[in-house]
Design a protein around this nucleic acid. Sequence first.
DNA 1: CAAAAAACTTAATGTAGATTAAGAATTTGA
DNA 2: TCAAATTCTTAATCTACATTAAGTTTTTTG
Lengths: 134, 134
Amino acid sequence: MLQEFGELNTKVYHVVSGLLRSYTLDKKGKEHIFMFGPEGWVVGDNVPPEIPCQLYIDAIEDSELYVLPKDLKRENKNAEAFIKRLGVLQKRVIMLMSASAIERYEHFEETYPDIMNRVTQKMIASYLGITPEA
Amino acid sequence: MLQEFGELNTKVYHVVSGLLRSYTLDKKGKEHIFMFGPEGWVVGDNVPPEIPCQLYIDAIEDSELYVLPKDLKRENKNAEAFIKRLGVLQKRVIMLMSASAIERYEHFEETYPDIMNRVTQKMIASYLGITPEA
DNA sequence: CAAAAAACTTAATGTAGATTAAGAATTTGA
DNA sequence: TCAAATTCTTAATCTACATTAAGTTTTTTG
């Protein structure tokens, strides 16, 4: 477990190997996966350091990470990573608003081609915003 | 109309006054509002300049804008704006995955307190990911 | 200002996905 | 290595929201 809901001044995790996951719990205690973090991805809570974080982050495989401060000024060379991140989130919102569960599944396969067999179907459902049964 | 779907090298719009809207059309031609841009907000397509953009952007009120190049290097002082943007998007994804239409409506009221009476209910429905009837 | 277009309202019906349940298969961990 | 926990599967039932339709109000525009 790398980060709990509500912590302040949380870190940003650059994944060298392994697999991270960030998620929320809703008021019924149900888990909703926000993002997977396989090799090369960056995982963090997208809120300013002084605001309590909204996500849990844990590793679902043994992982090697670079742990970075959230403070942006220092990583302006990472601007590319931020644009990419915004692009992924934008697409995710569009899919959640306008696509069926099946279409979102197909888009998931494209976004994370390498992790299909590294996560449970329950986790995929959680990422898609549906139940494992569906 | 400021930006059409599929354009390259699109701009970023800093809203001084008025109200912008970015949206997609799904395969049925249905409109899905991605973001509103009232005074002080920044609206743009979050994809790299060389990738065809995914959003339409238009003004729904007479507006005054600063038109900025998408190129990030130049605006590293705007890093704050990017963090804020990521935070808004993160929350939006979480809400779309785990909250009911009514809860999303309430969250919309908090996110955009000043525009409730400046947009049609049809647009609010489009933003929430539901039909106007619902 | 008047006609046309767009938005709103209400209501009946339809459906994607949720919920619940319970047994089978797989994974985990002492 | 085996018991416990978790995940998967199937199926019946339920529900939030979609779809359709048609009349009404409001806004836009020539």
